[in-house]
Computed example of a mutant assay.
Amino acid sequence: MMKSLLTGATFALGLTTAAFAQDETTKIGFIYVGPVGDGGWTYEHNQGRLAVEEHFGDAVETVFVESVPEGPDAERVMTQMALDGADLIFSTSFGFMDPTINVAGKFPDVKFEHATGYKQADNVSVYSARFYEGRAVQGHIAGQMTESNVIGYIASFPIPEVIRGINAAYLQAKAVNPDVEFKIVWAYTWFDPAKEAEAATVLIEQGADVILQHTDSTAPQAAAQAAGNVATFGQASDMAEFGPYPRVSSIIDNWSPYYIARTQAVIDGTWESTSTWDGIAPGMVGIGDITDAVPAEIKASAEAMIESIRSGDMHPFTGPINKQDGSVWLADGETASDYGDDGLAGMNFYVEGIVGDVPQ
């Protein structure tokens, strides 16, 4: 009997210890707008998730759901993650903003991190990268590489992040090539290879020999490669498989340090709602290898620009800059503010020289 009781006590202790260990595991959820194999935006967010697993080992468990439409489906997925015991949920697309806020209100003990949005709560942080810094570098290269003076831009949705990117690229292209013209196709998607390839083809037919994109697949790279003599830039991920040409450089989103730091804050019990907007200097925005397809003098000037942005000596939005209607936005030497009236965070206008209207 004594042995039986001892065994039972030992078994109960084992269960308690196992339950305690399970409770100590931090569960992290990720919700993605595209597939993890998109080669761009979602791929890099998933690399961040994998970095969390590698860094913390058995102390964390990560789960993810890919290709979630922005809207009610996102709310359903996050609700299920919270019900399944997630301690921290990263929602990684602009259109997940309201669903994130809605679900966070129902689960006050769960921490939420929303990428590229602006709505916060006690248990909701927001984070984004200054992609416009990378697009300024792309514009600098594109303006010098184009022979037709026509640069194509595949835009996703008319939100401030995308409009900032268009304006930043245009301003720096125009600075090195006064004859440059931007043609913009709004794809109204983040990830749709067929639509993206079609947009690239339309731009090439309109004379573009350099194409930039704010969509997530490698379809524009493939379309440019098939057309020949059209330069492209990787979006969100390196897309180096299309180098050294047509892909001549890229913007690389590096989410890993942020994801590790925010997970650590949850583990430590120090997590607080914050707003993060980092760029080239902290390493959240990387510039992929500038290939030898770019002439040496252009490559050197682009590298100098990267270092100037990194050091803070250059801001991509430095006046004089007018709005599209000719009204003054920034006076000579004035740099754009992040927030407030006409701040970068709410940018909803084209700068002077861009033809066409911002879709409403």
Rank of each mutant, 00 (worst) to 15 (best):
M1Q: 06
K3S: 03
K3M: 02
L6V: 10
G8T: 07
G14L: 15
Q22M: 06
Q22E: 13
T25I: 15
T26M: 08
I31E: 11
V33C: 14
P35I: 00
N46A: 02
Q47N: 11
E54K: 15
V63W: 11
V68R: 15
V77C: 09
T79S: 13
A82Y: 11
L88W: 08
F94E: 06
P99D: 04
I101R: 05
E113A: 10
E113R: 09
A115V: 14
G117I: 03
N123E: 10
F131E: 13
Y153M: 04
I163S: 05
A169T: 02
T189N: 14
E196S: 02
I204P: 07
E205N: 10
Q206N: 10
Q213T: 06
D216V: 00
S217Y: 04
Q221K: 01
Q221M: 12
Q225T: 02
A231S: 13
F233M: 05
S237N: 14
S237G: 14
S237A: 15
D238G: 03
F242W: 15
R247Y: 00
T270Y: 09
D289G: 08
V294C: 06
A304H: 07
R310A: 07
P316V: 02
F317C: 02
G319C: 05
P320S: 08
I321H: 14
A331C: 01
A331W: 09
E334P: 07
T335I: 11
D338H: 11
D338Q: 14
A345S: 14
M347E: 02
F349Q: 13
E352A: 03
E352D: 13
D357S: 13
